[in-house]
C-alpha cells in the first residue's frame, strides 16, 4: 500500500468580505458577507515509501494547504487522505509523532533556548528513548555540521544555521516521512547546496519519504524525481521531472562558434534561431534529433572553434507551463 494516499482532497476557506468605503463598513456591522475561496479542488495523488516528490506551483496554488492537511494541522473540507495508514486530522497525536515537518517561513524551535536544549525538550515531547536520542542527535549534528552552534540561543543564529537546526529538529524522532515547505527560502547558495545534499542523502540512504514544496526550481532539479504541479487548487501535472521538461520545452539549443565567417548555415534537424558574427544559435527538438548527431553534422560541414548545448532555463519552463494552464493567481 502506498505510504501517502490523497483522494479528492478539497479545502474551502471562508473569508469575510465587505464593500469599500464608509457605507460598506457600516453595512458590515449588520450583515457579514462571506466569500468562499477554493484552495484545493479534488486533489488526488499517492506516494510510495522512499519516493521524493517535488510540489510546485505559483503562490496561492494550494501547496501549503496540502502540506498542512497532510501534517495534521488543518482539516480538509472534503476528501480523504492517509499517511502510513493514519488519517492525519483524526489520529493527530499518533500521526504527528511519526512525521517530520519543516516550514521554511517559521521556526519550530524555541527562540530563547540554546539549540541543544530545544533538542532535549523535543526528545521529551516525542518521548524518544534517551540512548537512541543520543545516537540520532550525534549523527544529525555531525551531518549538518551544527556542533559549534548547539549552545547558542536560536535567535542569535543566521538563517542558514537556523535552517540546519530546524532540519535536525524535525528528524530527532526518526520519522519515516518528511514534509519540507519551502525549506530553502532566503538561504544563501552554500546553505542551499548543503541542505539539498543532506536531504538527498537522507532520502537515498535511509529511505525517508520526502515531500518538498519550493519556488526554487534548482531544488526540484537537484532533488525531485517526481514532480506535481499544482495551480488554482488542482493537480495540473504529475510526472517525472524529465518528462515534464521534455513536454513543455522539448526544444534544446546548440550554440556554435565558427572558425571562419560562414554564409548560410543549413543543418538537417535544426534551425537557426539567432546569429552574432561567427556565433550561431541553432534550435532543435530533442525528441527528433540527438545532440551528438547534430554536433557531428555541424562539425563535418564546418570548421568549429567551440560548441555547447543548452537547455532552456528551468524557470522559463515553469513560467510557460503556468501560463499554458492559466495557473497564475488572478
Amino acid at each position: 500500500m502506498a505510504q501517502i494516499t490523497v483522494e479528492n482532497l478539497g479545502k474551502i476557506y471562508r473569508v469575510t468580505a465587505r464593500d469599500p468605503g464608509l457605507a460598506g463598513a457600516f453595512r458590515g456591522l449588520f450583515q457579514r458577507r462571506h466569500r468562499e475561496v477554493v484552495a484545493l479542488n479534488q486533489v488526488s495523488f499517492s506516494l510510495e515509501k522512499g519516493e521524493f516528490l517535488g510540489f510546485i506551483g505559483p503562490n496561492g496554488a494550494g501547496k501549503s494547504t496540502t502540506i498542512k492537511i497532510l501534517s495534521g494541522i488543518l482539516r480538509p473540507s472534503s476528501g480523504r487522505c492517509t499517511v502510513s495508514g493514519l488519517v492525519p486530522w483524526e489520529q493527530r497525536i499518533a500521526h504527528v509523532a511519526r512525521i517530520g515537518v519543516v516550514f521554511g517561513q517559521r521556526t519550530q524551535l524555541w527562540w530563547d533556548l540554546p539549540v541543544v536544549e530545544s533538542f532535549e525538550l523535543l526528545r521529551d515531547i516525542y518521548r524518544v528513548d534517551p540512548v537512541r536520542f543520543a545516537t540520532t542527535m550525534e549523527r544529525l549534528v555531525d551531518m549538518l555540521k551544527i556542533a559549534p552552534i548547539l549552545d547558542t540561543p536560536l535567535r542569535q543564529l543566521s538563517l542558514g544555521q537556523r535552517m540546519r537546526c530546524e532540519i535536525a529538529a524535525a528528524l530527532l524522532h526518526e520519522p519515516r516521512v518528511l514534509f519540507l515547505d519551502e525549506p530553502t527560502i532566503g538561504l544563501d547558495a552554500i546553505s542551499k547546496l548543503a541542505l539539498r545534499e543532506f536531504v538527498k542523502e537522507l532520502n537515498r540512504n535511509e529511505g525517508v519519504t520526502v515531500l518538498l514544496t519550493t519556488h526554487d526550481m534548482h531544488d526540484i532539479e537537484a532533488l525531485a524525481r517526481r514532480v506535481i504541479i499544482i495551480g488554482q487548487g488542482k493537480v495540473l501535472r504529475d510526472s517525472s521531472f524529465e518528462a515534464m521538461r521534455n513536454e513543455v520545452l522539448g526544444e534544446r539549443r546548440l550554440i556554435v562558434d565558427f572558425a571562419d565567417d560562414v554564409g548560410e548555415v543549413a543543418v538537417e534537424g535544426a534551425e537557426v534561431r539567432a546569429r552574432d558574427g561567427r556565433t550561431v544559435e541553432l534550435t532543435f527538438d530533442r525528441a527528433k534529433t540527438a545532440a551528438h548527431t547534430l554536433i557531428a553534422r555541424v562539425a563535418a560541414a564546418h570548421e568549429v572553434v567551440d560548441m555547447r548545448v543548452e537547455d532552456p532555463k528551468i524557470e522559463e519552463v515553469i513560467a510557460r507551463f503556468y501560463a499554458m494552464h492559466g495557473a497564475v493567481e488572478a
Partner: peptide, 9 residues
C-alpha cells in the same frame, strides 16, 4: 495551529 504538530495534548 502549528502547536498541533507536537504529539502531545
Amino acid at each position: 495551529g502549528y502547536e498541533r504538530l507536537r504529539p502531545v495534548d
